[in-house]
């Protein structure tokens, strides 16, 4: 069976719903507008927009403490900025959460010209955060795997969206 060529926003939405996500804490990047429109149209999903990605970690922790199931949607640049907040508010409080992280600069073959991509996986390994790469609709069950792992370990788990430049948008 031929692999789907891209990761559609509908697939991401389906994964969110399937895994019981109640709140999306997010900061837009250039590739997520169609997903934003889908999320905005869903009356059961609350969107909490932040002005800097690190702020999202404590908001998500508060939502979790109050019994909700938040998810974070940010770009790798913002994840790099958020290091101390991920450490303190998510890892420190044992918040089981999935962060979907746009993998800016990802090229699949590893030869890239964007340092955001260069440091993304190194950052995650330094923090000992599990991560899964999703490039197209055929990979989308890895998102569920990430949710399951987050619940089991009570830790943040990252889904890297390696489709930033060809298809996550339309």
């Amino acid at each position: 069976m031929a692999e789907a060529a891209s990761l559609s926003p509908e697939t991401v939405m389906r994964q969110m719903k399937q895994n019981g996500v109640t709140d999306i804490v997010w900061l837009p990047d250039s590739e997520t507008n169609w997903l934003f429109l889908l999320m905005k149209a869903d009356p059961d999903l609350r969107l909490v927009g932040v002005t800097r990605e690190g702020h999202g970690c404590s908001i998500a922790a508060g939502l979790y403490a109050g019994g909700r199931k938040p998810m974070m949607l940010i770009q790798n640049t913002g994840m790099l900025e958020s290091g101390d907040s991920i450490r303190g508010w998510l890892m420190g409080l044992n918040v089981p959460i999935v962060l979907m992280v746009g993998y800016r600069g990802y090229t699949r073959h590893g030869v890239n010209t964007d340092t955001a991509a260069t440091y993304t996986e190194r950052f995650l390994m330094a923090f000992n955060i599990s991560f899964y790469l999703v490039e197209n609709d055929g990979d989308s069950d890895r998102i569920t795997t990430a949710f399951q792992e987050a619940e089991r370990t009570r830790k943040p788990v990252v889904v890297l969206v390696g489709d930033e430049y060809h298809g996550f948008n339309r």
Partner: peptide, 16 residues
């Protein structure tokens, strides 16, 4: 937990 984050935690809890 990490300085600067209490307001966000409060917001999240209040929304929840």
């Amino acid at each position: 937990p990490a300085m600067g984050g209490h307001a966000g935690f409060g917001l999240g809890l209040a929304l929840a």
